[in-house]
């Protein structure tokens, strides 16, 4: 049985401070060639409120997924307007995986995202509008239903409306019923919209 050994001192503090962990030191580490150094820098920058800009700059060039995730977690924790503005910029990226990570990060920033939600939902790019609705999926904010109603009332793009509709089936109340009925008229040739609107209406009326 002594095959299983006691750990001697594997868990200790020596690894803690191999490099300078002050702000300039961390920024330097964020550009290191070693992904693990970059990842740790990204994690440690969570205590530096001025780090958002550098983090996003790195995020755009970052090709190591684990570093990218750490940067996004830190941006979520920083939660300042600079971080949010940079996240919005990334929504326009062609990189699908990055975009989806950014959407997830923004879901966790209700107070910071709320003020810009209106402009995201009326962006000229329908993809950005769809992503904005995706953010609403988990955004813990009381205005979600109102935003969704605005979308199905005003948006002319079928997939933007379809995405909003999916969510309204879950969070919609009697207040959404008229907008849902009108949406069916607007897209009367789209079986999916009819299906999803009917489902939402049924859920709301029978709840």
């Amino acid at each position: 049985m002594p095959i299983i050994k006691q750990v001697d001192s594997e868990i200790n503090d020596t690894e803690k401070r191999l490099n300078a962990r002050d702000f300039p030191g961390l920024l330097e580490q964020l550009e290191s060639n070693d992904p693990s150094a970059r990842r740790w820098a990204a994690r440690d920058l969570a205590t530096h409120s001025e780090a958002a800009k550098a983090l996003v700059q790195r995020l755009k060039r970052e090709d190591d997924k684990s570093v990218g995730e750490a940067i996004l977690t830190t941006l979520t924790k920083l939660a300042d307007p600079v971080a949010v503005a940079c996240l919005v910029e990334c929504l326009r990226s062609e990189d699908v995986a990055l975009r989806n990570e950014v959407i997830e990060a923004m879901k966790n920033l209700p107070n910071e995202v709320a003020p810009i939600m209106g402009s995201l939902l009326t962006d000229t790019d329908p993809d950005v509008r769809i992503f904005a609705v995706n953010i609403l999926e988990s955004l813990r904010h009381p205005q979600v239903e109102t935003w969704l109603m605005e979308v199905i009332k005003n948006d002319t793009h079928v997939n933007v409306c379809a995405t909003a509709l999916d969510l309204l089936g879950e969070v919609g109340t009697l207040a959404s019923l008229d907008a849902l009925q009108n949406l069916k008229l607007k897209f009367s040739d789209q079986p999916y919209i009819i299906f999803a609107a009917d489902l939402a209406i049924k859920r709301i009326s029978e709840a």
């Binding site: 049985m1 868990i11 503090d13 020596t14």
Partner: peptide, 25 residues
């Protein structure tokens, strides 16, 4: 006793970056 000696129990807060830094390998 042999089994009690075989496991090292440590306190760690998974949410504390400084706490977890030394857990490697």
């Amino acid at each position: 006793d042999d089994l009690r000696q075989a496991v090292e129990f440590t306190r760690v807060n998974l949410m504390d970056v400084d706490d977890v830094r030394a857990y490697r390998g």
